[in-house]
Design a protein around this nucleic acid. Structure first.
Lengths: 217, 217
DNA sequence: TAGATTGTTAATCGATTAACAATC
DNA sequence: TAGATTGTTAATCGATTAACAATC
């Protein structure tokens, strides 16, 4: 595999799309070969972008032919690291936490939420799917015993930093943060913010301006 | 307000962050004036980026002084269209749908989910918050009577296109799509995909390569 | 061979950052 | 006035797209 420096962030966001699409093609359509044009077409991505993205990691196709569907799927899976299972601990047993635990499709991406923690005595002991909610105080044991590197934060914004600190202290390496809070973390910890409110506002923005433009603004 | 052409998408994604931060500053910290450096600092965004983003829409600050916190908040709110309430219909009364209905913080961004629909007879009639789940067959009436322009899709991937068609047919103008499916829609309909699986995979990618790099790969 | 499609280089496009005059 | 900070132009950086030789 090639040098991984200078790979566009956007490329890394597209690889999972390719991966999931190839999986569908292999399972449902039984296709064996796919061109960059066909794969891109299904995702609304130019063929040239598909080829460029793949080229950062190696040569996976056959000129004049295309890509082997299950072969490429396997290769991308390996690149992404979804060829193994990554256990994760989720903190915050509210509605969103519950939704993520039950979310179909994480499985296929290598994510397995193995533990749910909360500070609220009213929630500790509850069952989500087949997981029993434990106290946040157990975080160190849970992370150690499960060799967990991934933490998911679904607590309210004002509790997020404290939870992040506890997760990091317990040995977590990456955080998926659903709270609308910028977390301050050591530089070797990777944080990804999944800020739902931002998503809806960009839609509202476009709706709003369409109105302006139509009805004079 | 200035010409709205050629505004970077990234700028529109940052405006909600500024908006929410200014709101916090006004409510909790009682600050009256803020510089681009201070505002950016709280969000991890360079001051020059903050000023550039705002400059697409007008002049909101005072040289040598900074920005009036509540004034700028109001201005950005107007730009984004969150100075009014946007009613929305959500389709798919599963865990994720339930989580979104209960999500704190949409309110502040002008989103109000007023109706929840589902095709599953087992879910119709259930209550989520104070909303009773209705049949998807009611979509036309609901959208018309509520003057709803915003639809949210939280159904499984294989049902998403059909639901999108029904929403569009009923008169919806924008779709927030949580299903891992590329929707095919008329070009005047705005779609935003909120693909949760992509988010986690980019974290897994970095975790995975950190391991490679450390333990020789 | 002729047609198709890859992998890659070069050109273009878009977004960020630096620099600085304007001005409070 | 001196110091601070904006708004904007120009320079840089990064990502996408076009073009095309390589090759199946």
């Amino acid at each position: 595999m090639k040098n991984r420096d200078y790979i566009p962030k956007a490329t890394i966001e597209r690889l999972p799309l390719y991966y999931r699409c190839l999986d569908k093609m292999a399972v449902f359509d039984g296709e064996e070969v796919v061109s960059s044009k066909e794969l891109g077409g299904r995702l609304g991505i130019p063929s040239t972008q598909v080829r460029k993205d793949l080229s950062y990691y190696g040569e996976f196709g056959r000129r004049g032919v295309g890509y082997d569907v299950s072969g490429l799927k396997k290769s991308i899976g390996k690149i992404l690291g979804v060829d193994r299972v990554w256990p994760a601990v989720l903190v915050g047993a509210g509605n969103l936490g519950r939704a993520l635990v039950n979310y179909e499709g994480f499985n296929k991406m290598g994510l397995n939420i193995v533990s749910v923690l909360d500070a609220d005595l009213g929630k500790i002991g509850n069952k989500i799917d087949d997981i029993t909610v434990e106290s946040i105080k157990e975080v160190e044991r849970v992370v150690r015993d499960g060799s967990i590197e991934l933490g998911i934060i679904t607590v309210p914004g004002n509790a997020a930093q404290e939870v992040a600190d506890e997760l990091i202290n317990a040995g977590i390496k990456s955080i998926w943060n659903f709270a609308p809070t910028r977390l301050i973390v050591p530089k070797d910890i990777i944080v990804r913010n999944e800020d739902l409110a931002v998503g809806i506002v960009s839609l509202i923005y476009h709706l709003s301006w369409n109105k302006h433009d139509k009805h004079g603004g």
